[in-house]
Amino acid sequence: MIEFYAVYVIVLRELKKFVRERSRLISTLARPLVWLFMVGAGLSRLVSPKAGMPYTQFIFPGILGMTILFSSIFSSISIIWDKEFGFLKEILAAPVRRSSIVIGKSLSGTAVSTIQTVIILMLFPVIGIKLTLAQILCTIGVSFLVAFSISSFGIVLATFYESYESFSVIMNFIVMPMFFLSGAMYPVRLLNAPLRIASSLNPLTYGVDALKNTVFTLREGPLSPDFSLGFDLLVIVLTSVLFVAVASRFFERKG
């Protein structure tokens, strides 16, 4: 059972802070734009489009995945700030189930992350991708699910760290590798065996693959998605449930 008002008020708090902190919106939107237009545009001269599509188009779902990854993790990691500044005690002492707290926090990350992903998604005409309305809606729906799973993963991460000094550790050693091994910048199937295994354990891999499924109609060739949309969604949903359960358990654990 989930306490509706607890979830509501946790999400509301995040949205209020998000709206107030405009620099955060700008910096999280700047990153995908830099990758799309600077890195992507540069690399597209190197990668020939004969594989099925221009490189900038190929990385577009990956860039959506990046937007989700960074803003979801950033939002969830704010729990470390809440620990540091005491607010987490206010939440943990409240008579609400730990799972409601985790779901509230995950939905907070999901909300801010989906908003930003939709903004980036609307750039599709600029890079020459054609999307039908149905594709756009599916992509937004998938983004929402991916954002939820990555946010809940971020909460599991946050339970391990006590201070914000760990923030850069998390960014450099967990988030960046997750991005590169997700198939965002190159198809996973091009990787060698050990990296391919690492990538198959990466929750973002299935998210990026699901986004490739909804953004592209291409179903074969070297740049096509690695798995079916159904399989991707199954993994995303199952891992979300797992992460929420684990995080709830960790929150109940006390010194």
């Binding site: 306490e3 008002y5 607890a6 509501y8 008020v9 946790i10 509301l12 708090r13 209020k16 802070k17 107030r20 902190e21 500044f85 005491g86 607010f87 005690k89 206010e90 939440i91 409240a94 008579p95 609400v96």
Partner: peptide, 25 residues
Amino acid sequence: VFQDSTLDKDLTAYENLAFHAYIYG
């Protein structure tokens, strides 16, 4: 009332209290 502050400094006074009211049912 904890010894160390547990307020959210980026919210208003009203928002801090309303948050508490909701989460305490």
